[in-house]
């Protein structure tokens, strides 16, 4: 194993890791927005919204994220969608992550005992008041850990955008293999950096989860 080479190239990988982190953060934000809307649609009083929410989830969980990225980035221009690779990466991965988060958020909401809503409604609260005063504060606490799992998956999924030439960790590793012919070292280095990102994120999620629990 060529440790010297790894030490020589690692600053470039570190730079790429920041791109991966930025990509992850933006994807997570977009995913949360899509997931919240998706969950609201899935739980709507109106059948049309429920159908649209369910369709969103099954389409984006039912096809490979890589295909979704290719359709958006490579197929997009054909139907008038012009995005650069980074934008396509964020939007494609964000919408994909949102489909998973839809189910996480919905799951946490329906896990709240229905007696909670009943108690709120019998006091005279409207459906929406019961939702935001009673259901969501409890559901939010339940969501932290499973959303943490979604976040973990999403960070690893950012590796896919290497396929559309976004210069992030995986793409950088591939590029350095071209010039060094050392795939073991290059992928190992990328893997270590992914693991650090995932580990720190995981600790953050665990901390948040502890912090929001009711005494």
């Amino acid at each position: 194993m060529d440790i010297d080479l790894m030490l020589k190239v690692y600053p470039f990988f570190l730079e790429a890791a920041w791109v991966t982190i930025l990509l992850s953060v933006l994807t997570a934000i977009l995913g949360l927005i899509c997931g919240t809307l998706g969950a609201a649609a899935r739980l709507s009083r109106f059948a049309l919204f429920r159908f649209l929410g369910a369709a969103y989830v099954s389409v984006f969980r039912g096809t490979p994220a890589l295909i979704q990225l290719f359709i958006l980035y490579l197929g997009g221009p054909q139907i008038g969608i012009q995005l650069d690779a980074f934008e396509a990466g964020v939007i494609g991965l964000g919408i994909n992550a949102g489909a998973y988060m839809t189910e996480t958020i919905r799951g946490a909401i329906i896990a709240i005992d229905k007696g909670q809503r009943e108690a709120a409604r019998t006091l005279g609260l409207s459906s929406w008041q019961a939702t935001y005063k009673v259901i969501l504060p409890q559901a939010a606490r339940l969501m932290v850990r499973p959303l943490g799992v979604n976040l973990n998956m999403l960070i690893k999924a950012t590796a896919l955008v290497a396929a559309i030439a976004v210069v992030e960790l995986t793409y950088t590793a591939q590029r350095y293999i071209g010039s060094t012919y050392k795939p073991f070292e290059m992928f190992l280095l990328a893997g270590i950096l992914y693991m650090i990102i995932i580990y720190v994120t995981g600790r953050g999620v665990a901390w948040l989860d502890r912090k929001v629990q009711i005494t």
């Binding site: 007696g115 909670q116 009943e118 709120a120 019998t122």
Partner: peptide
């Protein structure tokens, strides 16, 4: 209304 399982808001 008072319920069998109290239904207090735990948070």
């Amino acid at each position: 209304m008072v319920f069998q399982h109290f239904n207090l808001f735990p948070h």
